[in-house]
Design a protein around this nucleic acid. Sequence first.
RNA 1: GGGGGCGUAGCUCAGUUGGUUAGAGCGCUGCCCUGUCACGGCAGAGGCCGCGGGUUCGAGUCCCGUCGCUCCCGCCA
Length: 622
Amino acid sequence: MTKPTPHALFARPALRPPIAPDLAMHRYRSHTCGALRDSDIGKTVRLSGWCHRIRDHGGVLFIDLRDHYGLTQVVADPDSKAFKLAETLRSEWVVRIDGKVRRRPGGTENPELPTGQVEVYIDEIEILGPAAELPMPVFGEQDYPEEIRLKYRFLDLRRDHLHANIMLRGKVIDSIRRRMKESGFFEFQTPILTASSPEGARDYLVPSRLHPGKFYALPQAPQQFKQLIMIAGFDRYFQIAPCFRDEDARADRSPGEFYQLDLEMSFVTQQDVFDAVEPVIRGVFEEFSNGKPVTPKFPLIPYADALRKYGSDKPDLRNPIVMQDVSEAFRGSGFKIFANILNADPTAQVWAIPAPKGGNRAFCDRMNSWAQGEGQPGLGYIFWREGEESGAGPLAKNIGPERTKQIADQMGLKVGDACFFVAGKPKDFVKFAGPARARIGEELGLIAMDRFEFCWIVDFPMYEWNEEEKKIDFSHNPFSMPNLPVEEFLALDAKDNDKLLSIKAIQYDIVCNGVELSSGAIRNHRPEVMKKAFAIAGYSEDVLETKFGGMLHALSLGAPPHGGIAPGIDRIVMLLAGEENLREVVLFPMNQRAEDLLMGAPSEVTPKQLKELHIRLDLPKK
RNA sequence: GGGGGCGUAGCUCAGUUGGUUAGAGCGCUGCCCUGUCACGGCAGAGGCCGCGGGUUCGAGUCCCGUCGCUCCCGCCA
C-alpha cells in the first residue's frame, strides 16, 4: 500500500464557519475540522466529521476527524467519560464531538497538518451516521478498479485527490465565467429539450407524450441556438453549456454528456475571436497552473503545416521534434524500397523524423520493433556515432555517405543523433508519423512536461476527396464560411475538383499539449453561399431545406457575420489537474459503456410509462 | 462493429514446468497496549480462483467459448 501523501486536503484553505458562542453552541459544530490553531487553545469546541483514521493505543485513542475543510486530531483516554464510546468508532463513521482544545505535548506536533499544533480532548461523542464495512477505503491514495470507484462514487469523492479535483473544476468554471463577463460576454441558457439535428453525432432522443411518435433530442451543442442569439442581435453570447452525444467514449471523451465553454460573437473576423478567447484561456491556465509556464502568445499554425511538421492536427508542441521532407535524398538512391516508392508515384514523399541523442542501435531497434507492433513494415533509420560519423545502419550504407550527409545537414543532426524515415503518400503515412514523433520524443525524454503549450490550428480545408464514394465531401464543419469572397465562391465550377479541394474554411482549433480543446469557425451566414457549399458536396437544395430550413430562413432575414468557438471544460480541467482521464474531473461520470453505476442508468421503465409515451419495445434477440 | 490488457478474500495483489490443505497486506471480529499520526502485538473469521465447456490421473495454472471492466481503432456539433 502506498503511503498517503499530505495533499490538497491539508492545504485546503480553512474557511471560517459561523463560530457560535460557547454557551449557545451550534447543533453540529463551532469550528470546521480545518480551523483550529494555537490561538484556540483552551476553548471548548464542537466538531463534526468523518472518522478518517483511528489509532487505538488502549490507554489513549486518537481519531483524525475529517470534513471538507481539513483534519483535526481528537483524543480520548480513560479519564474521559466518552472513552468507552470512542473505542467503538470505526472508519468513516460520522460523529459530533465536544471537547477542549489543547496544545499537543512537546515533540508530538504534526507539521504536515495546519491544525497539527493542537488536538481536541473529547468530553462527549454523538454518533450521527454509523458506517457498515466499506467496499473501498477512503484513507490513502491507492488505485481501485473503475467499477468499484464508480459504483461507490460518493466514497471515492471523499478521498482527497478527487475531492480536490472537483473543487478545482468549480474554481476553474468560476474563473472562466468571471473572465468572460469581464470581456463583455453575456450568459444565456439554451433549451435542453430540442429538435434532433441530422448532422454529426448520434442524438439522445426523448419521446414526446403529447405528440405520439415524435421525439425531442438533447442538444449535441447549442450551435444553432447561439447563432440565433447572434441573429437576434445580442452580440456576445457565452454559456457553460451541457452537450449530449450518443457516441463511444475515450479516456478524454466522456460518453453521453460533457460541458463546453460555448461562445459566439457578431461582426467579427477570425482574429477577433482569437483576441477574445486567448486571454480568457491563458488567464485561466496561468491562474491554476501552479506556476507552470503558459504560451504567452498562441502561434497560428496552418493545418497543412501542422501535418507536415508534427504529423498531427493537434500537435504537442512540448515535443521539439519537427519533421521534414527529405525526398530528394532518397530519389534514385541505392535504397531501392524508398527510391521505388518515389519513382512510382509523383505525390509520394519521404519524411524524416529527427531523434536528437537517439544515436545508438538499441534505441533505433526498439523504435523499429515498436513500429512493427503498430502494423508497419518497420521504421528505417540512420544514426551517427563516434567512429561512424558518416552514418551507421543499413539505410546509410544503401544510400552512401554523400546523401547521408545531405540529410544530416538538412536536419541539423550530428554525432550521437538518429533520424527515422517514413515513405509513401503523406496522407497515408501521417497517421503513423505523428505517433512516431510522439513516441520518439517520449522515449528520449525530449518533452518538456512542466508547461502548457498552446497553438491555434488554422486554414482547414473546406472539402476533402471521399475516395470510397468518389465525390467531394465536407472535411469538417459544413457551416463554416469558405475563405473566399462571396462572388468568387458563388461562381465556382462544381466540377473543378482541384480548385474546390484547395479552398480553405474559416475554421480553427485550439490545441494545448496535444489535446484538442475545441473547434470553432466564422459561420456561413449567407444562405446562397450555404446552398452553394452544400451543392458542391452533392446535397440538393431540398435536402438542405428539409434539414436546416429553419436556420436558412433565419439567415435570410438579416443575419450579422458571426463566429465563435466552444472549448471543452472537462478537458481544460483535466489538463490543469494533470489527469489522463476525464472521469477524474467529473463529479458523477458514466463508465465507458455510458452507464451510471451509482444511479443505475440507463434502466428499464414500467409498461405504464411506455404506454403513455406510445412506445412498444422491439428488443434484439438473446 | 473490431483489436489489446485485465478478472484469485470486502479491497490491493502473489500464486513456480499443471501436483496434495490457494497465500500476503489493508479492512473486519476478539484480546493486549497511555502519545500515535500508514501506531504496534497476538488470535480468528472470510474463497463458485468471473461463468460454461474441454484436455488430463489431477486445472487458479493449458485449450475453446462466454460475460464483465478498461485502453485503443471505427465513430465523435
